[in-house]
């Protein structure tokens, strides 16, 4: 096997010692990220299963509880996240083509959109707190569906909370990539980290694409 390593800009070692060549390293990292995303699907999948189970069990309560969510804010956040996936894709493209300045610009924009999402989410949580919709002793829900509605809001907070945690981790990864880009690390032969960060960001976006209709739009037709 050929173990010749092409020289990278800034002369840092691209290939880790355990790999034969840069191509093998790229393929391994890429597969590793996809396998990780498979575990993430199963991780969220457990909660989606619980959601499906209770929604089938309490369809009217879920519709009633869902009506208490602010669909406008949810829709705005959906648009914000989809836009952030677009800027993320541009950042990855900047990294792949070695345009580190463009990569930084789009990474910062993606982080900004992520922060807007989290800010809106925080505001929504605050509203739910004020309206006594946080599960626990203070939970108040008028009508016959108080108990199942509490389960709906338990799921709402658990699912969106875990999603928000993934967003925060994602913003951390974007910061790391921006620092790498500032050192002009990315080039057409070395762009795996920013590409994989992009995959992660799109995945977190995609989770929200499922969460939004399941949580916000259940009761709209009633």
């Amino acid at each position: 096997m050929n173990s010749a390593v092409p020289a990278a800009p800034d002369a840092f070692e691209v290939r880790a010692h355990q790999f034969e060549d840069v191509e093998q390293q790229h393929h391994a990292s890429w597969l590793g990220m996809w396998v990780f995303l498979a575990t993430e699907v199963m991780f969220f999948g457990g909660m989606f299963a619980a959601y499906a189970f209770y929604r089938v069990g309490f369809p009217n309560a879920f519709a009633a509880a869902s009506n208490r969510l602010d669909v406008t804010l949810g829709a705005i956040n959906t648009a914000v996240l989809i836009s952030s996936s677009f800027t993320m894709a541009l950042a990855v493209h900047g990294g792949e083509t070695g345009r580190n300045k463009a990569a930084i610009r789009y990474l910062l924009l993606t982080m900004l959109l992520g922060a807007v999402f989290l800010g809106v989410k925080f505001y929504e949580y605050h509203e739910k707190f004020v309206e006594h919709l946080v599960p626990g002793p203070a939970f108040r829900f008028e009508g016959p569906h108080a108990h199942p509605a509490e389960i709906f809001f338990s799921l709402y907070f658990a699912m969106t909370g875990l999603h928000a945690l993934h967003m925060i981790i994602g913003i951390g990864l974007l910061t790391w990539m921006a620092l790498k880009a500032r050192r002009k690390r990315f080039s057409p032969i070395y762009y795996t980290p920013i590409e994989l960060t992009g995959l992660y960001w799109h995945f977190v976006d995609l989770i929200w694409i499922f969460l939004f209709p399941l949580l916000y739009l259940v009761g709209r037709h009633l």
Partner: peptide, 10 residues
């Protein structure tokens, strides 16, 4: 104090 698996709360 959530109620995912508590039969008393559905």
């Amino acid at each position: 104090n959530l109620g995912f698996f508590d039969p008393a709360r559905g």
